[in-house]
Write a protein that binds this DNA or RNA. Sequence first.
RNA 1: GGCUUCGUAGCUUAAUGGAUAGAGCACCUGACUACGGAUCAGGAGGUUGAAGGUUCGACUCCUUCCGAAGUCACCA
Length: 606
Amino acid sequence: MKDIINDIQIAVAEAVKEIYKTDIAPEDFLVNPTKKEHQGDYTLVTFALAKALRQAPPKIAADLGDYLATARPWISDVEVIQGFLNISLGDDYWSSRLGEMKRDPNFWKPAMPKEKVMVEFSSPNTNKPLHLGHIRNILLGWSVSKIFEACGHEVFKVQIVNDRGIAICKSMLAWMKFGKDQTPEQAGRKSDHFVGDWYVRFETEFVKEYTLWQSTDEAKAIFEKRTDRDLDTPAFFKSYKNKYFNTISALGKEARELLLKWEAHDEETIALWKKMNGWVYAGFDETYRQLGVDFDKLYYESETYVLGKGIVEEGLQKGVFYQKNDGSVWVDLTDDGLDHKILLRSDGTSVYMTQDVGTAQVRYDEFGAKRMTYVVADEQNYHFQALFAIMKKLGAPYADGLHHLSYGMVDLPEGKMKSREGTVVDADDLMRTVIDEAGEAAAEREEVDDDIIRMIGMAALKFFIIKVDPRKRMTFDPKASVDMHGQTGPYIQNAYVRIQSILRRAESSDSGYAGYVVNEDEKLLLNMLGQSAGIIENAARDYSPAVIANYAFSLAKEYHRYYHEVQVLKAESEAAKNFRLQLIETIGVVLKNTMDLLGIEMPDRM
RNA sequence: GGCUUCGUAGCUUAAUGGAUAGAGCACCUGACUACGGAUCAGGAGGUUGAAGGUUCGACUCCUUCCGAAGUCACCA
């Protein structure tokens, strides 16, 4: 179904051809909904046409207005204000729009050429449970996937799990030393949190060890030899911590030895590693289930970290990369405004970039998606710029389809959220909190079942996060996130619930609404419903679910207003009642479908 | 220092280069014998960080500056 603006644009283009004998494309000029303070439904902005037609904008508006008002029966009235042509549409046109939406169940979404699209999101580490930052990531990734699906694409949702390295070894070591073969069940702890607890325990023990060491003669000697004389004792030991871990620490040594054993495929170590990661995955699955998301394929760094070496060798042969005397392999990205980037260390081992190059290729081989979106925080902007530049240099057929959906950090009101500062907001805790809050709000009303309370709480949380433009850093206000009034998920759910409540009470009637004169509020609503497909297209183009969140909110707001303005079941005529029932049902369809793109469920009652 | 992103009401934010910058929260007034008040109507609150420039028209584009964040590892 074409939207109204498109209809008008075509009519205008035809009028231009008729009057000025000039060809102009319908999308080369602007048609907007008319501002409330002016007469009319849609406004043609004629300034863009002025150059091509070599006429003054008001003249163009007048000419086109005269022509359209007589030649197009569905245009009932026109008015010229300076360079703006305000166009009013006839009643028949408006009510026929509603019928078209009824007939086409897909009217709300765009029809685009099908493409294969891959979206990578979440991508956690296995040593800690998911937190607020992951939630933003996951909601964005999930929503973008749903949006692409709505556009008609075939979407593959993947995540890459960082399951290797020193971090998980710390958890393993702490568990071996202090865990006494305990299991999550015995500890009564969600299994990913259980593993995270051992990571924290390791850090605690390490800090204890480090603090004790600081009063030894060895430490004092090192402090005296410091190069930066400005550092006082606490500042020096803060900066020395990493060095201490890698050189002197007994715990550090044990952890590094464990990593070496893992790399040597030591049987016992691998078994423990599998056991602990298994606990983590079971915990993650539960969190994902509560968030309402899933994946088509998981990649593990323990498998992918060896990838890419072959491609780098090839690139070296082709002269895309170069080798330094020490044997390390580099790429020169200065043409792209970047620096030189290393791809293979002098000992021949791979770096992060090598792995990403390899993983991209493997995924392309597996899925054949020429578009891949990486949902990763903006601290990695530079990395992805470099990665995409490298893929282009290598001539990968999918290089132009690579996209980094970069999003800003989530701040807490107190300051930056970092796990080491202990202000991390745990994903499971957060979800529990918002659902509890929804339960309390519901208790003041009437009893509602747990599933609906869950939907309401999750809607509050998800909408709060997703309504913000991904690029922007956002401040997470715990109090505002559980708010159910105003610009929130529950507000939109409430609009839907009101619609369903009316529809439940309505007796079916087939008498139709022929001859019904659509009022201004209804025109506005029909207009908004017609925009749905275009909005989704924009959201896909900009990789921005926030666009849809804002649209759904506006539509719900307009509906709430309408609800107070008119009676549906006790409408002034049978035609009015039928028209309005049809209208609000359609609003309900669009609300439910657009909110689904954000991963938000719509209850029938609340 | 180079590069990237962001700066809009007290707070959180919206606005393909189009008409008088639109909302929500908080604050103040009103509207329930209800198609569900998790709602609605109204009030107050803005030099869109600053200054130039381009344009018929700039929150939007360009330049310079100010402020915030990130990044510029043989870390991931």
